[in-house]
């Protein structure tokens, strides 16, 4: 089997999503001098404290774990912005414009660099709240499912992945039902056309 069973349904594993989000760029403050780093995806450096530099998240995390840099949290990851986002999230029906990888990035950063983020405990609680509110919204959006199109602006990858199996299944089931069931206002001719087309598959 070329792919394990659990990833065959167009779903990513959480670990894979974390992997994808680790290619986002993040600003770090190097604590040690280091020469230019030539990687396949690009060249980073030279690292000269106290000049900040942008690197991919995975590199930042590795450096942080070796105590060779401190991480500058992204603009949205602070207590004021998140409080505003939470208010917006509560008052509006739509999803607020958090970054696409907000859940993954904040989890990774709070995990390994909580000392670089002021008020990290409060931020954790705020993020949890926001996540809960958004989850509630996706659940209440279930009745919007149809077999044509659903708009889900500002949803993060992790959130999409979470709803994907259920939404896809519902979408497919409705599509199949509609193919078999003719519209009530349709005439007999379309009905026979549809049945003949279905039997061809």
């Amino acid at each position: 089997m070329a792919l394990p069973k659990y990833v065959q349904q167009n779903v990513f594993t959480p670990a894979e999503i974390e992997f994808i989000s680790e290619y986002e760029q993040i600003t770090i403050l190097p604590l040690q001098r280091m020469e230019t780093l030539t990687l396949l995806e690009g060249t980073y450096g030279p690292f000269r404290p106290p000049i900040t530099i942008k690197v991919p998240l995975w590199l930042a995390v590795t450096l942080k774990k070796k105590h060779k840099c401190s991480i500058q949290p992204p603009k949205w990851l602070n207590i004021d912005t998140l409080k505003k986002k939470k208010q917006k999230e509560e008052s509006l029906e739509t999803f607020s414009d958090l970054p696409y990888h907000y859940l993954e990035i904040s989890t990774i950063l709070l995990d390994c660099a909580s000392d670089d983020i002021p008020y990290s405990d409060e931020i954790k609680i705020l993020l949890k709240d926001i996540q809960e509110i958004r989850k509630r919204k996706t659940k209440s959006g279930l009745d919007l499912i149809n077999s044509n199109n659903i708009q889900l602006d500002n949803l993060g990858l992790m959130e999409i992945n979470e709803i994907r199996p259920f939404f896809s299944k519902a979408f497919n089931d409705m599509r199949k039902l509609e193919e078999v069931l003719p519209n009530s206002q349709d005439s007999q001719t379309t009905q026979s056309f549809n049945t003949s087309r279905n039997s061809a598959y």
């Binding site: 077999s147 044509n148 199109n149 659903i150 708009q151 889900l152 602006d153 500002n154 949803l155 999409i160 939404f167 979408f171 599509r175 509609e178 193919e179 003719p182 519209n183 349709d186 379309t190 549809n194």
Partner: peptide, 20 residues
């Protein structure tokens, strides 16, 4: 759309959709 019907969708930058 379903059953050969067509419908119009406005696709703007950064919109996320679930579509066929």
């Amino acid at each position: 759309g379903s059953q050969g019907t067509s419908l119009t969708v406005t696709l703007k930058k950064n919109n996320i959709f679930m579509l066929r």
